[in-house]
Every structure is written in C-alpha cells, then in structure tokens.
Simulated assay, not measured.
Amino acid sequence: MQFTSLLAVAIAIGIAIPAQAQISKGDVLIRARAIVVAPNERSGAVTPGFPGSHLGVDSSVAPEVDFTYMLSDHIGTELILATTKHSVSGRGTIAALDKVASTWVLPPTLTLQYHFAPKSHVRPYLGAGVNYTIFYHARASDSLVGAIGATDVHLTDSFGYALQTGIDVDISRRMFVNLDVKYIDINTTARLDTGAAVNRARVHVDPIVAGIGVGIRL
C-alpha cells in the first residue's frame, strides 16, 4: 500500500476514535519504521588518478527505531537509530566500473520537535537537529580491484544538520501510525589506497529519509 493511502486510512480511523488527551509533558513515544534512504549525492573528481570521474551513492531500505521524550506538551526531543548499507558507483570516466565500493552507514540523529496539536488524534510536527554519521566496513568492489589492484577504502565520518517533518495518527488509545520525512546533511571524503597511490573524492550524500511505521505512547 502506498504511503499516502495508508496515511489516509489512519486519519479516518483517528477521526473515529472518541476524543481524549493524547500526548503531554513526560510522555515517551517509541516508533518502529521502515525507511528509504535516498541520497541526493554529488561529488568531486577522484583525484589525482581519475580526472573527469565522479561517485554516486545508491538508495537503501532498512528498519529504524526512534525514541521521543516530550519536554512539554508541544516540545519533544527525538533520537533516531538505524544503519543502512549503500553501494558506491563510478560515473564519468570510471562509469564502466559500475560499482566501485560498498559501505555501511550509521547516522544517529537527534532532533528537537514542535508538535502542533498534542491533544488531537492527528498530530503534525516539525523538527530540526544534528546528525553524526559513521561510515564502517567500507570495501572495494571486485571491478575496482580488477582495474587498479588491491585497494583499501576509507570514508570520513560526518557531522551536519537535520530537518524533519512528520505526522502521528492514532489507531487506538496508545498506538499510532507515523509518517516521517527528513533531510540530513552528510558529507564525506572517500579515500582509495592502492599501494603507494592515494586517490580522494569529496562526496555530498545529503539523503532524503522517508519512513512509515507504528508507534506507542508510554
């Protein structure tokens, strides 16, 4: 079912539930989502060895868990935890290599949210915060190794900002459906060590992270 169709059903259910105060100061909201991480990547050339080249980062789907603590009826703070695996592809003069590397990404993100209608069954919110992204288990692809030899791949960690919008819609007195979209500022430098040769490329990943799931109010 498409996100919009599921959300429409959830809103209809939420409207039908008898009115009752929903979230308030001190509440803890736990959500489990399925997320799509869709990079809006751009990169510089892989230099000095590959002028005219670029790197691309593919999308990934993964589960995610987040925790929100309500500091007041309207203000909450949310911690998002998930990890995804991404392929790095060659473009420009290295497009023939196709996949050049893969990496796992761990991007814990903390946002401060404003909940517009805490006593409603349909509760939109906006958030902004910070993100620290860790790249781990980066590996060169067989095609890259076959072209230039055994290569170690390293990607620097990233610190940036995050923007968020979303909506919670009740499906029972404590459970709700959630739709959430984030933009996360992620920048890294990819380093390829091939013997004594070192090549680098600056990559702006900057993904849109769209998720849908269910939550519970404690």
Score class of each variant (00 low, 15 high):
52 G>Q: 13
53 S>P: 02
58 D>G: 12
58 D>V: 12
59 S>P: 05
61 V>M: 12
62 A>D: 13
62 A>K: 07
62 A>M: 07
63 P>H: 01
64 E>D: 13
65 V>W: 09
66 D>Y: 02
69 Y>R: 08
70 M>P: 04
70 M>Q: 11
71 L>N: 11
74 H>A: 10
74 H>L: 05
75 I>P: 03
76 G>T: 09
77 T>I: 15
78 E>K: 04
78 E>Q: 11
79 L>Y: 05
81 L>M: 13
81 L>C: 11
81 L>T: 00
82 A>G: 04
82 A>E: 04
82 A>R: 10
83 T>D: 06
83 T>K: 10
83 T>L: 09
85 K>C: 00
89 S>A: 08
89 S>E: 10
89 S>Q: 08
92 G>N: 11
92 G>R: 11
93 T>P: 02
93 T>V: 10
94 I>R: 00
94 I>Y: 09
95 A>S: 15
96 A>Y: 14
96 A>V: 14
96 A>I: 08
97 L>M: 05
99 K>Y: 00
101 A>T: 10
101 A>E: 04
102 S>V: 05
106 L>S: 10
107 P>Q: 10
110 L>A: 06
110 L>K: 09
111 T>S: 10
111 T>P: 03
113 Q>S: 03
115 H>W: 12
115 H>I: 12
117 A>C: 00
118 P>F: 07
118 P>Y: 08
119 K>L: 11
119 K>V: 03
119 K>M: 08
120 S>E: 10
120 S>D: 15
122 V>N: 01
123 R>Q: 12
124 P>T: 13
125 Y>K: 00
125 Y>A: 02
127 G>P: 05
127 G>E: 09
129 G>R: 08
129 G>S: 09
130 V>L: 13
130 V>N: 00
131 N>T: 15
132 Y>A: 14
132 Y>S: 01
133 T>F: 06
133 T>S: 14
134 I>R: 03
134 I>S: 10
135 F>K: 06
135 F>G: 02
135 F>Q: 03
136 Y>G: 03
137 H>V: 06
138 A>Y: 00
139 R>P: 01
140 A>W: 06
141 S>H: 05
142 D>A: 15
142 D>H: 14
145 V>S: 06
146 G>W: 15
146 G>N: 14
146 G>M: 10
147 A>Q: 08
149 G>I: 01
149 G>A: 08
152 D>G: 07
154 H>Q: 11
154 H>V: 11
155 L>N: 07
156 T>K: 15
156 T>G: 14
156 T>L: 06
160 G>T: 14
160 G>Q: 13
161 Y>S: 10
162 A>R: 00
163 L>S: 06
164 Q>F: 01
164 Q>V: 03
164 Q>G: 04
164 Q>L: 01
165 T>F: 12
166 G>L: 06
166 G>C: 04
167 I>H: 06
167 I>E: 08
168 D>W: 09
168 D>V: 06
168 D>F: 04
169 V>F: 07
171 I>H: 09
171 I>A: 01
174 R>P: 04
174 R>F: 06
174 R>H: 13
174 R>V: 05
174 R>L: 12
175 M>Q: 14
176 F>T: 00
178 N>V: 12
181 V>G: 08
183 Y>E: 02
185 D>S: 12
186 I>Y: 01
187 N>I: 07
188 T>H: 01
188 T>F: 01
189 T>H: 07
189 T>V: 15
189 T>C: 07
190 A>L: 12
190 A>F: 08
191 R>S: 14
192 L>A: 07
192 L>Y: 14
193 D>A: 13
194 T>C: 06
194 T>Y: 09
195 G>M: 07
